[in-house]
Amino acid sequence: MLKSLKMLTAMFALVAITFASTAVYAADSKKPIRIPVHNWSSQVVMAYVIGGIFESIGNNVEYVPADSQAVYESIRQGDVDISHEVWESAFGSSFDAARDAGGLLDWGDHDARTLEDMGYPNWVADLCPGLPDWTALKNPDCAANFVTPDSGGKGRWLEGPQTWHQDLMPQRLEALGLDDLWMVKFAGGADALWAELDAAKKENRGTIIFNWTPNFTDGAGFTFIDFPPFYDGCRPEDGGDGACGSPDGYLKKAVNENFPNTHPDAAAIFKNMSFTTGHIGAMAALVDVDGMTHEDAAAAWLADNESVWKAF
């Protein structure tokens, strides 16, 4: 017992010494770059793709499962080094808060533009003449096609979990004066949305769900509803009434403030790195449509698109 205690103390001491040991780096530190992994396909594949690119220039990488909102605080604290998919509509406010608190840097945008909003699979257009314009939703006959047993006689919007945008959609319904005809149900995760899409397709019934692009549904016929355009300050948390759709959003990259100092080469590459909607959709489709594992999909993408990523 005592012996093992002594050993433990020795180990602690050694660990402590290691942390204290000094070294000044001119080139990239060999310390692994910690890349967060979230729970949707394109993000996971892109994490492995970026990891692959970093490894190709001799860096070490490590993947850390993380919550997609909480990750910005983690980057700020230095528990994670980078984030490669900051979606404006969903994570914009978490990102801004962490950046303003200090410790997190804005590291440029991808070419891809993003949209995260309510929408419908294409066959639904017949149920509700006038779509994709949002005013079509004012028609009670339209709403009646979207009633479910538990929606209290109103049409149902299936929104993602409340983690994603809090009360944005209920507020929007209210602000647009649609709350007499429509209600919002929060799903528990992306899986619930895809399951609803499958079930609606099977029954050929109406459904309005939250979705985003670039995503694997891009190729499967999915249309977003045209809400009144977004402008700065139209959302309730910014003092507006909430009667607007989601922004044509950025897809940003973020890094911990020390990352450019410890890994200058990788940071430079990461700054140049820019994926397009097509790239991201392809990465997601390798997993969601072709059924590959995330690592395999990343390897396949890297092999097929060498000209794209070598240019960074």
């Binding site: 979990p161 929060f186 528990g188």
Partner: peptide, 23 residues
Amino acid sequence: IGAFIGTEDLGQYILKALSDRQG
């Protein structure tokens, strides 16, 4: 845990706390 299916109870709020600044 039913919050992962989609509920309106305390669970949904616990899930939400994960990403809340006052979480």
